[in-house]
């Protein structure tokens, strides 16, 4: 799992010296750089990690960059990760088109201009982090919205229930009033339970425990005494 404030960068190149150079180049961005040497390894990585951008060498033995890109684009989980192709030679327009149709958003042609590589990757990292931040905010907002609705529901439940009880009481229907108060308490507890999760005290527990504390004339049990004797 990538921490919230870090983005993953996946670099795919069959030549370790290229990977080493790119890793050093991206170091100043302070993100989480993963380097792999084949398309298969890249696909494996994408199964269980999220990435902001993929730098993908076109020319690799076995599965080449285009084929790797196509497979990345076939998967729902990785479909929208931007892919930047790295290529050792100048493309003609036909090859460039092939790359774009495979899902590339950009090309970087070797020899790489280090400043440009870093700047481009930084743009994708910023986009990714911004999107993540927006997602977190949206999640918080929807949570607040749910809580607000639950609070309103609680308010209605209590106001309504007490009105029913009050009128029943004024009309001399004391059993009805008691029942309304009981139902209101139960309903309020249900909504409060939703609102607070487990951070709550059940008022019913307090009521039920009440009589047990009434002095019976016997000496009160010493707290913890039972436990000590049991040991």
């Amino acid at each position: 799992m990538i921490p919230d404030e870090q983005a993953g960068i996946l670099v795919v190149d069959d030549r370790p010296e290229n990977l080493l150079a790119l890793r050093e180049l991206l170091e100043p961005l302070h993100q989480d750089v993963t380097c792999v040497t084949s398309g298969d390894d890249a696909l494996r990585c994408l199964l269980n990690q999220e990435f902001a951008v993929i730098l993908l060498d076109v020319q690799m033995p076995g599965m080449d960059g285009f084929e790797t890109a196509r497979r990345i684009k076939q998967r729902e989980k990785s479909r929208y990760i931007p892919i930047v192709f790295l290529t050792a030679y100048s493309f003609d327009s036909h090859q460039a088109l092939q790359g774009y149709s495979a899902g590339a958003v950009d090309y970087l042609v070797r020899p790489l201009d280090l400043g440009i590589v870093r700047s481009k990757v930084a743009v994708f990292v910023d986009l990714y982090l911004e999107r993540k931040r927006a997602e977190r905010l949206a999640a918080q907002l929807s949570k607040l919205d749910v809580r607000r609705r639950q609070a309103l529901e609680l308010n209605d439940t209590i106001v309504q229930g007490l009105a029913v009880a009050k009128y029943a009481f004024e009309l001399g229907e004391h059993d009805q009033a008691r029942a309304a108060i009981g139902e209101t308490l139960e309903a309020a507890k249900r909504v409060l339970g939703d609102l607070l999760g487990d951070d709550r005290v059940d008022p019913g527990d307090l009521v039920r425990e009440g009589p047990a504390r009434v002095p019976t004339g016997h000496a009160p049990p010493i707290p913890g005494h039972e436990a000590r004797r049991g040991r």
């Binding site: 209605d156 106001v159 309504q160 009105a163 029913v164 009128y167 029943a168 009309l171 229907e173 009805q176």
Partner: peptide, 15 residues
């Protein structure tokens, strides 16, 4: 002031 529901009417309807 009460919620929109006809609480009072329902109470009196029982009578």
């Amino acid at each position: 002031v009460e919620p929109a529901d006809a609480v009072l009417a329902d109470a009196l309807a029982r009578k």
